[in-house]
C-alpha cells in the first residue's frame, strides 16, 4: 500500500498496464515528455519510450480515430482527451466507429481494447469549457462502457479493468479530486469489476446514488442527515453503462426512497434513466417521488459555480423533503 492522490493512482495504473503488456500505448495532447496538462502520464515516456507514450497533434477526432485503428489492429490504446469538454469533435468516431465496430462486422473486427480517458466535471473554476460532465451522451450509445471512479483506489482498479476489458471504455476522471482525494492504494496490480456499484454505507430511510466527485457530496449530506436521525444508504454507481440496476433496486426496495445526485444538467441526465428504471422495478416499494439533485439546465457557470453545483446542502434539503413527503 502507498498513499496516492487520484492523479498518482491513474499514473500508477497506466504504468502497471504498460509494464504488463507491451501492446498498451498511451497518447494524446501533451501526454508525452510533458506528462499531460494534469501530469497523469508523467514519466511514462521516459520509462516506455516515445513509440509507446507520445504526443499527438491537437485533434480529438484524430486521436480517437487513430486509437480505433490501433485497437482493431490488436494494440491496447489508452487515449487521453485533455478535457471532457473537448471530446465532441471525436463524437462521430466514438459513436459510429468505436461503439459499432464489433457489431457491424459480426465480431470480425472490434475496438474492445480501447480506453478513452478524460478529466471531467466542475470545481476548478474552469467555466463552461473546462467543467462539463458529458457522461449521459455516452450512456446512450450501445457498445461502449462508461466508467467513473470516485477516489484513488477506485481509479487504479477501475482503470486497469477498463484497459483489460474486451469492450471499449470511456473513463471519466473527476479532475477536482485529482489532488484533493488521497488514499491508500495497493502498489501491485488489481482490478475492480465493471458494471458493479458499491454500497459505501448501509441505511434504512433513503438510498443516495452518485458517481465520481459527487460521491463525497452525498456522503457529506448523509452525515448531516444522520445528525437528524435519518439513515441514508450511500451508493457509488461507478459504471454508468452497463449499470448495476440490481444493487440500486435492492437498496430502494429496502429504503423506499431514492435520491440521485449528478453534476450534469438535470434534463436527460443519467439520473433520468435511473429514475425511470427504479420506478419500473420498485413502484410498490416507493414511499416518495424519486428525487434528483443535479446541475441546472444551463451551461456550466464560472462566477456562480458554487451556486450551480448540486452540493451537500441541496442534497440534505432534498433528503429531508423526501423523507417527510
Amino acid at each position: 500500500m502507498a498513499k496516492m492522490n487520484l492523479l498518482q493512482a491513474v499514473n500508477h495504473a497506466l504504468q502497471t498496464a504498460m509494464e504488463a503488456d507491451e501492446k498498451v500505448l498511451v497518447f494524446g495532447e501533451d501526454v508525452g515528455h510533458f506528462g499531460g496538462v494534469f501530469r497523469a502520464t508523467s514519466h511514462l515516456q521516459e520509462k516506455f519510450g516515445k513509440t509507446r507514450c507520445f504526443n499527438t497533434p491537437l485533434t480529438e477526432q484524430g486521436i480517437v480515430g487513430f486509437a480505433n485503428g490501433l485497437a482493431s489492429q490488436g494494440h491496447k490504446p489508452v487515449a487521453e482527451i485533455q478535457f471532457a469538454d473537448y471530446i465532441y469533435p471525436a463524437f462521430d468516431q466514438i459513436v459510429n466507429e468505436t461503439a459499432k465496430a464489433r457489431y457491424r462486422s459480426g465480431g470480425q473486427f472490434e475496438c474492445g481494447n480501447l480506453t478513452i480517458r478524460a478529466p471531467y466535471g466542475g470545481g476548478i473554476a474552469g467555466g463552461h469549457y473546462h467543467s462539463q460532465s458529458p457522461e449521459s451522451f455516452f450512456t446512450h450509445v450501445p457498445g461502449i462502457r462508461v466508467v467513473i471512479p470516485r477516489g484513488p483506489y477506485q481509479a487504479k482498479g477501475l482503470l486497469l479493468s477498463a484497459i483489460n476489458s474486451p469492450d471499449p471504455v470511456i473513463f471519466f476522471e473527476p479532475k477536482r479530486l485529482y489532488r484533493a482525494a488521497v488514499g491508500e492504494v495497493p502498489e501491485e496490480s488489481y482490478q475492480l469489476p465493471l458494471g458493479i456499484a458499491e454500497v459505501l454505507r448501509e441505511g434504512t430511510d433513503i438510498s443516495l446514488v452518485a458517481w465520481g466527485a459527487q460521491v463525497e457530496v452525498i456522503v457529506k449530506a448523509a452525515d448531516m442527515a444522520a445528525e437528524k436521525g435519518i439513515s441514508c444508504e450511500v451508493i457509488d454507481l461507478q459504471s454508468l453503462l452497463p449499470w448495476d440496476l440490481e444493487t440500486v433496486a435492492t437498496s430502494v426496495t429496502k429504503t423506499g426512497r431514492l435520491l440521485i445526485n449528478h453534476e450534469a444538467p438535470v434534463t436527460s441526465g443519467f439520473g433520468a434513466e435511473i429514475a425511470a428504471s427504479i420506478q419500473q422495478e420498485c413502484f410498490l416499494s416507493l414511499e416518495a417521488p424519486i428525487s434528483r439533485v443535479c446541475g441546472l439546465d444551463t451551461p456550466f457557470p464560472l462566477a456562480h459555480e458554487k451556486l450551480y453545483m448540486p452540493d451537500h446542502l441541496k442534497t440534505f434539503d432534498a433528503i429531508v423533503a423526501c423523507v417527510n413527503y
Binding site: 480515430g65 480505433n68 485503428g69 490501433l70 489492429q73 490488436g74 468516431q93 459510429n96 459499432k100 457491424r104
Partner: peptide
C-alpha cells in the same frame, strides 16, 4: 462503415500498429 472519412485516421492508427 457508412460515415465518410472515418477510416482515414483509423488507417493511420492501424498502420502505426503494424
Amino acid at each position: 462503415s457508412s460515415p465518410l472519412a472515418t477510416q482515414i485516421p483509423q488507417a493511420a492508427g492501424y498502420a502505426y500498429g503494424q
